[in-house]
Design a protein around this nucleic acid. Structure first.
Lengths: 175, 175
DNA sequence: GTTTGTTTACCTATCAGTAGGTAGACAAAC
DNA sequence: GTTTGTCTACCTACTGATAGGTAAACAAAC
């Protein structure tokens, strides 16, 4: 993997566990085995790094969502969507990057906050399309809010039970 | 208001807009018109300040919830509960303190994270009691997750519409 | 095929600014 | 005269960011 990508990966991990303020060029440099000036070579300003991480994260998520869109019924597509979030929470043991940055949105550099907004709008659009011919369903923004909130609570209480309850609730209201 | 309380108020505002890392003793001192050493006099370590803010916030929220518990039906009590969160979002123009700190929980000093956990558990307990004799209702943790997620999304997209949609959805599933 | 110029990807060293935190002087209140 | 609250003055550690340099890779010119 290129140094560029290794830095992005390390930055995503630190962002997701501690937020924007918890990411420093020196820590990232140490994570990937270079000096902080070299991190600045790849991402001149912290804002550039923030935007790049969110953009890469968005692409990664929507690549995973590509398969979920293939499912036959709206309900199965929603189950696939939920699965992507569950994987992020359980396998990567961290909340969604944009849940963290969404909470901090008011204090973020404008371009970073805008990238987060784009992520959520893209999620709304994806769900609108995936559930277009459902006979009964919550609004797309409601689904996202429920899942992001469930991650947040699961993260704090250190229990994924609440996430599964929310997921079941959403699926039972969709067909 | 005492200097102690003025510092708590300023710290809450900064915590809710930028997170734990965005709060500095110097900024707080400037906010309330003293020097940073004086803030250290009231709250020796940042962790002490963090715990005190969460504790005071919890008390403030549950004081407001006291009235909501008086309502006659489970549905009305839920409406009152939602109203407390709506007020925090709309009137104070910020997400719930514990939504922010819950997202950052993994990177917080242990006692602060624990205070946040206590806040959420107290909310679960409150809802369990308020909706005890409802004939139909979401689980308490589901309600909290939905509302916290709705705040997060509303904060990022700068639109309270998603919050109202989530609130309506919760009320329609409760009676 | 060797010289020349350019780019990539890093380095060391340093900057001004800010972080949390402390020691000790001081004045007013009790 | 002791407690309370604030001050000045300082510390060490770390922040994002910049300057200037270097070794290797590559391509074009001769």
């Amino acid at each position: 993997m290129s140094m560029h990508d290794k830095i992005l990966e390390a930055a995503e991990a630190r962002l997701r566990s501690g937020g924007y303020g918890a990411v420093s060029f020196r820590d990232l440099a140490s994570d990937v085995g270079v000096k902080s000036a070299s991190v600045h070579y790849h991402f001149p300003r912290k804002e550039d790094l923030g935007v790049a991480v969110v953009t890469a994260y968005t692409e990664k998520v929507f690549e995973a969502l590509g398969m979920a869109m293939q499912a036959r019924t709206p309900r199965d597509r929603l189950a696939g969507y939920i699965g992507v979030f569950r994987h992020a929470l359980v396998e990567e043991d961290a909340i969604c990057l944009c849940a963290m940055l969404g909470a901090e949105a008011r204090g973020l550099p404008h371009q970073v906050a805008e990238a987060v907004r784009v992520f959520f709008q893209a999620n709304i659009d994806w769900l609108d399309e995936a559930l277009a011919n459902a006979s009964r369903k919550p609004k797309s923004a409601e689904i996202i809010a429920a899942l992001e909130g469930a991650m947040l609570l699961a993260n704090t209480m250190d229990s994924i039970a609440v996430f599964e309850d929310v997921a079941d609730g959403l699926l039972s209201r969709t067909e």
